[in-house]
């Protein structure tokens, strides 16, 4: 989810028809600038170099969204709110990257699912498998990243992530933010009962290693055993795609 205010304009976006490393590249109708989604930045055109601002949004199942937001409305296109045809189903199940793409390096499996974040000039990724029930990672100084996924969560489900000044530790099964005394409610995935500055929610990408690593090969991979640095000489990025039939209306 992005703000459409960028570079002093309100832009309208659509699929450009092209991809970079298998990821969406949008184009806006006002300036024809191309926007690379994985970098959230204009890559060609008058607004090149401008960054899109991410807005908080969650991916969840309709029944859960409805329970927490009973007054919600839902998008309807041509009288439909849902579609049984999912063009991405096979891609998600496959262990291979889009059209044979391989990740920038072998620190994680090609299709490992992960939380990826851009924090200032740093890119970090944490495999989903380490986040079940919550985990905390030091980012240097007093700053740390806390992220949480429920047990058995589908890879589609958003990870809740927070940046914290000051330590977060687990006490008798509950995550506690020590400076404020706030406790993490794993059902609602919010910090409660704290005083002062609470951990700040941050928005990242839940995606695959192949997708993120090709956009950001210098990413630091955070694991419970420590940080996996990018290899000094990442594998050269392979040529990405073969031409699609001209009448194809989907990526797949």
């Amino acid at each position: 989810m992005y703000s459409r205010r960028v570079g002093g304009k309100v832009c309208s976006f659509e699929a450009s028809g092209g991809l970079i490393h298998g990821s969406l590249v949008m184009q806006d109708r006002e300036t024809n600038t191309y926007w690379e989604l994985m970098k959230s930045v204009g890559i060609a055109g008058p607004l090149r170099g401008k960054h899109l601002k991410k807005l908080p949004a969650v991916k969840t199942q309709w029944r859960d969204w409805l329970k927490s937001h009973p007054k919600t409305v839902i998008l309807s296109v041509n009288g439909r709110e849902d579609s049984l045809r999912d063009p991405y189903a096979n891609y998600v199940k496959s262990s291979k990257g889009f059209r044979g793409l391989e990740a920038a390096d072998d620190r994680l499996a090609t299709k490992a699912s992960l939380l990826a974040l851009t924090l200032g000039k740093r890119h970090v990724a944490v495999p989903h498998e380490h986040l079940v029930g919550g985990a905390v990672f030091s980012l240097g100084g007093s700053e740390s990243l806390f992220a949480h996924r429920p047990e058995g969560a589908s890879l589609f489900r958003s990870t809740r992530a927070f940046l914290s000044r000051g330590a977060i530790s687990r006490k008798r099964g509950t995550w506690v933010h020590l400076p404020s005394g706030a406790q993490f409610d794993p059902t609602r995935e919010v910090w409660v009962k704290g005083r002062g500055e609470l951990p700040r929610a941050v928005t990242g990408f839940d995606t695959f290693w192949v997708t993120w690593s090709l956009a950001h090969p210098e990413t630091l991979v955070l694991t419970p055993k420590g940080v996996l640095q990018a290899p000094k000489r990442a594998k050269p990025v392979p040529p990405t795609t073969r031409p699609a039939p001209s009448k194809e209306l989907r990526w797949f």
Partner: peptide
């Protein structure tokens, strides 16, 4: 809405 309860949505 005609949508499966288990369908995935992006909510804002």
């Amino acid at each position: 809405a005609q949508i499966r309860p288990e369908a995935w949505v992006l909510g804002v």
